[in-house]
Amino acid sequence: MNESPYGYWLPIDISTHGYQIDQLIALLHWFMGGLFVFWSAFFIYCLIRFRHREGHQASYRLISGKFSKVLEVGVIIVESVLLIGFSIPIWASLKHDFPDAKEALTVHIVAEQFSWNIHYPGRDGVFGKRDVQLTSPSNPLGLDRKDPYGKDDITSINVFHMVVNKPVIVHLSSKDVIHSFFIPVMRIKQDAIPGSSIPIWFEATQTGKFDIACAQLCGLGHYRMRGEVSIDTQEAFDQWMLQKESESEQASSEETHQ
């Protein structure tokens, strides 16, 4: 990809579901534009034709209401179509049609001031316990390495690796305040709310590195709470996992030596 993914309108879309959102946004803007142009044309025509001139008097009589009735009924119909035909089904599919967990990559993302902690379950596919008491600068997630499930877990800060053409399920939560997980090129945005874990899913259709943004004011470092999503091929992803595994083994062996 040589072209910039970003511009003055929607960025490129590399998710499997995003085209529906783009379609809705496009339809809405055609509708809005049409209505605005129509209104404006009538408005400007009136401003010119009915300006005050010598010998011209305003008419006390009011014109019939057909014009506005047609317009209002038209607006109701278009809005209903956009709501029932587009918005509700898209929302329902995002909320209910979760991919099969066996087929998908499942991760936990825990937001904090001002970074994204990504927690992979490791080879056993089970997330180790996280405990508030264990949080430290080197272990921001408070991951319990003594937990049998936690030994092989992989963590990453601000860099989120995922696999192209394979759905991802993210369980989103926060340690402190409300953040919002936003990947513009993926048309995904979800608040990370302390005290609850909210699942979302998406699937990328091409590889590359893109911005993850925080979309909810979370304090003085809100603007620099930038993450990066790296969409890899399966091979590259496995490679990265292996590397991460050895890093964490090294770290834990150093810990036991101390």
Binding site: L24, L28, L82, K189
Partner: peptide, 17 residues
Amino acid sequence: LTGLPLGLASSDIHLHD
């Protein structure tokens, strides 16, 4: 008019905040 894309939940996903 620009309230419409924000009032529909699906288009709001990208535009929210």
